[in-house]
Structures are given as C-alpha cells and as structure tokens.
Amino acid sequence: MKTIALLTVLAIGAFLLYGTPEFPAWGDPQAPAALHVSPYYIEHTIEDTAVPNVVTSVLADYRGYDTMFETSVIFAAGLACLMLLRRYQPKTQETRLYRHVPTGITLRIAQGGKIPEASDEFERIDSQWVPYDLIVKLTARLIVPFAQLFALYVIAHGHHSPGGGFQGGVIYGAALILYAVSFDLRSTFRRLSERTAILLSAAGVLIYASTGFLCMLMGGNFLDYGYLAPLLGGDPVMARSHGIFIVEIGVGMAVMAVMVSLYYNLASAGRHDEGL
C-alpha cells in the first residue's frame, strides 16, 4: 500500500516537473500572465474607481462577483458547522461545575439541577479551571480593544493600504476568539450570542448582495456601483469607491461573525458550554 502510494506521489511529481522547463523565471516582468489582463487594472484603477489599492479595486469591483461568492462560501461553512455539530437539546444533562466565590468550594452537579448560570455567590467554571490566570486575563483585556480598533482601521483603510473586509473581519474575529480563550465561552456569549453571530453573518452577505441588487434596480448591471451615484452623491467614479467601501463593511461583518461562530461550534463540539 505504502509503495503504491509513494509511486503515485512520485508520478504526480514527475508530471508536475514535466511542465517546468516552460515556466517563466521567477519575477519575470515579461511573463504572459503579467502582460495581458492585469496591466489594465494597474493603469486604470484610479480613473475607474478612485481606489489606489489595486487589490481592493479588483477584489471588490472588477471581480467583485467572485468576492460575493467567496463571502457566501464562508457563510455556508459557518452554517455547515452549526448544522453538523450543534446540539440543541442535550439528551443527558452534562456535568456542571460551580464555584462558591466566598469560600472557594467547588460544587459538582452531575445531573439536572436548576441552578442559574451564575449568581453573586456562585460562578460557573470550566472543568479545567485555572484559579489565578491574572496575566493572561489582563493581557487579553489590554489587547482586545486595540485589536478591535485596528480591525476597524484595516476594514476602513483598505482603499489606500493593504487591508479590506476579509483581513479586518478576521482580525476582529480573532480578537473575540482571544477573549473567549482567555476568559471562557460563556462570557463571550454574553458579548456576542450565537443568534447574533448568525444574524450578522447573513446580514453581512446580504449587504453585499443587496448592494449589487440595488445597482440593478437603478438601471445598471449587477454590482455596477457606478449607478449608485444618485444615491451616494458625487460622480460614478466616486460612487464606485463608496460602493466598494459598503461591500467591504458587509464582508467584514460576515467574516467576523463566521469566524466567531466557527470557534463556538468547533471549540465546544456544538455544546456551547465550555471552550478550549
């Protein structure tokens, strides 16, 4: 078995090598890929869309349609994990641990029990509970707000510097995941509930798609932001720039929400009680 597999892999490698003599050299400015379509983007992005970052203008405008589906892919993945893993009604009540705050005694409730999530005297704790994680919690507390701020900057500044909805959305999601890792899953739910995450992810893609649809209602082709000029003010070129910004916000929202919801479902295996 192993030799057959090895031979298959070698055959694939040999097949890949077969084409290499014709590959253009690394960084060759005369390579065909660099001469046909892409120069148009570089030379016309400013006059077409007023966006200096060519990656952003190609991503959200020239090939904006791909990006809409890319956002849909990630939405589908979030929903897929939810559907595959989520346990809505656990058949057997899981064991839960509570800590009596004044005395530090831990209560273990094996079954049932109607003790609320948390009260002044009792707090619910994870099965692997670290009593003093001051440094982790404090550091996370310091980092999270700045990370979120930075994420918003990355989304908003995608027109002029590397960045955009995906990158910003991922950073924002990572900030929330950092919070969930350093505190616990339940306190993250109080900030961003599962339901809100799903709604945000659907709403994010919906912003993208309905912006495109609006262009259609205004008489243009789907996603032709230029036709939004009467609504957004300014000329069609600036309308494209604003249109790109609107869809980037939608992308950022969707990516952030899906990242968090993926974490919720994967880290707790769908039970939504305790994470990593």
Partner: peptide, 13 residues
C-alpha cells in the same frame, strides 16, 4: 451575454 459589474470581459466576469 451579461457583464457583471458592468466590466467587459476579460477584465470583468
């Protein structure tokens, strides 16, 4: 034929 976002292929989709 339909040009998405109003860009002519091969630049648009």
């Amino acid at each position: 034929e339909y040009h998405l976002a109003g860009w002519r292929p091969p630049w648009g989709i």
